[in-house]
Simulated assay, not measured.
Amino acid sequence: MRKPITKKGVEQLKAELKRLKNVERPKIIEAVAEAREHGDLKENAEYHAAREQQSFNEGRIAELEGIIAHSEVIDVVNLNVGDKVVFGATVVLEEEASGDNVTYQIVGDAEANIDEGKISISSPIARALVGKRVDDEVHVQAPGGEKTYFIEDIKYI
């Protein structure tokens, strides 16, 4: 099954993949070779550290290649969605209890980052928002109990 990802999200993953292959991999190969020259590999901490770093890097490369291969890029700008919340939309919400505004973009699992205001399409709040419109009331079951939000604005950027 293909998982949705935004155009910007897949571009970021491809940039990371390129960096890991073209910058990090050669550095690590050089570090392994240099550490090998220091003699006995059994007691060579530099060699083991370099090999561990190599293993981590290759694992991340494989992970990124898998994510990219199994993703479906959705460019919300080109969709005719009207005024509904859909995958890729940026939504401005007002929390009923506090009156605070929060802004979230609904993105794929691989690009979700709450510190950047990006929430996964599979998260409870995203699932509650999809299909809603401006001024709709949204109830979300959060770990701390149910929260109510009002949709202030929806942007497709």
Rank of each mutant, 00 (worst) to 15 (best):
G108K: 00
I28L: 07
I106T: 11
D136T: 01
I61R: 00
E65Q: 04
M1Q: 10
V140N: 10
E63F: 05
I74V: 12
G39A: 13
I157F: 11
A62H: 02
I67T: 01
A62F: 01
E52G: 14
E146D: 08
N113L: 14
E96S: 10
A35L: 14
Y104G: 03
N113D: 14
S71V: 03
L93Q: 01
V32M: 07
I119V: 13
R127C: 04
V76E: 00
D109E: 12
E65S: 05
I68V: 09
E152I: 13
R127N: 02
M1N: 08
E30I: 15
Q141R: 15
K8R: 09
P124H: 04
I154Y: 00
D135V: 12
A50C: 14
E111A: 10
E152Y: 08
S71M: 01
V77C: 12
N78D: 07
V134I: 14
D40E: 09
A33N: 15
K147V: 13
G108P: 02
V77P: 05
H38W: 10
P4S: 07
E63G: 02
E58Y: 01
I157V: 15
Q141I: 13
I28W: 02
V23K: 12
K132C: 06
D153P: 08
V138A: 11
S123N: 11
G9Q: 01
A15K: 08
R19T: 06
F56D: 05
K8T: 06
I154C: 06
E43V: 03
E95D: 12
D115C: 12
A97Q: 13
E11R: 07
A126I: 00
R51E: 06
S98V: 10
E94H: 07
D115Q: 15
A35V: 01
G144Y: 10
D115P: 12
S123C: 08
R127V: 03
V91Y: 04
Q141F: 13
I74C: 04
T103Y: 07
Y149R: 06
E116I: 05
G145C: 03
V77I: 13
A112F: 09
A126F: 05
E24I: 04
P4H: 03
A45T: 10
V85W: 07
R25H: 07
E37T: 09
P26A: 12
K42Y: 11
E65V: 01
M1P: 04
K27S: 12
V91L: 09
A112D: 12
R25M: 04
L13Y: 00
I106A: 05
G108N: 00
Q105R: 15
G9E: 02
D153H: 09
R25K: 13
I114G: 14
K118S: 10
E137K: 15
G131D: 09
V23L: 08
F56H: 08
V86D: 08
I74W: 00
I5M: 04
R36D: 02
K147F: 08
Q105G: 08
A15I: 01
G59S: 09
I154Q: 06
G117Y: 10
E52F: 12
L93I: 01
V73G: 02
S71Q: 05
R2A: 02
K132N: 11
E72D: 12
